[in-house]
Amino acid sequence: MDKTTVRMQQIALQTLANGEVDVILGWKKGDEWYDSYPVVINDINETAELIWDAFCVNNLSKYLITELKKNLRIGVFLKGCDSLAFNQLVIDNRIDSERVVIFGLPCPGMIDPQKVKHAGLNKGLLKVERTGDKIVFITKEGVKEYIGRSFDYDKCLNCRCPNPVVSKYMLSDAVTRTDEEQYFPDVTEIEKMPLEARYDYWTKQFSKCIKCYACRNICPLCSCETCVFDNIAAGVSSKADADCEQQFFHIIRAYHVAGRCVDCGECSRVCPVGIPLEKLNRKIIKDINQLYGDYTADTDIAKSPPLGTYKVDDFDPFDGSKQGGKK
């Protein structure tokens, strides 16, 4: 990891110095072992504090919206899933891609601090380093080593796009994924449940929601000036803690990212009460792939999104040839 960190600091210094960019968006290491927080730096000597480790999970592309409003040229470090989100933001005209310089970071997968805590390794833990498949935990008592990716986030385990799809500079060589991703196992598992069980499962999950809207705020696609749920005048939904309101919010949020969601899993990660929101988005992605062809909601900016277009001979589940019908 250090090789890339050094490479990252060099490129940041160089582009800031030669004025190619005015500001750099990256991560800095906090005092805790799991805390690599996003940071905006414009001072050359701050570039030395930039870091690339197994906890740079935050997607920096959404910060571009506010930063670009300051008419600056911005250099940003983007992982694979972050670059997908970047493309979506360009499609939505939320960012002006000319004024952005992208440093691509092929991502080996991020470590989930919860899993480290469950494994009881967090006592006295100072630093975690990962090189290739080897993970090294440096604690006060000593050093522990593990092989494999058992500590990775679930979303990283079946990651579809580890290598950035768009970048000016690539900071390390591409990462290859061997295990062919199974076809939405989590979604099919829920689909198999009987209807009432599904209803109870989701109502229980939704009832945990405290309407903090963290999922909306982190999502690169939910970038509306004023979200319809914040706009009281729209009269669409209220913050009351009633089942119907929770269901309303979650169904509509999932529907609003339909055909655009890049499956980066950030909504589930940041949800304080742990609602499996990505299962809603992935259900829609699975349906769209089956019905309207595999849309990789990322690569081709020119292609119009699935819900923004139609085909005359689309699958028509409502065309029962009832008596009196034309056909």
Partner: peptide, 18 residues
């Protein structure tokens, strides 16, 4: 055509939620 696409997905989502 848009109604058909929108509500094919929406109907599936509703059924998915029970």
């Amino acid at each position: 055509y848009f109604t058909r696409r929108r509500f094919t997905l929406f109907a599936n989502l509703l059924e998915y939620v029970g």
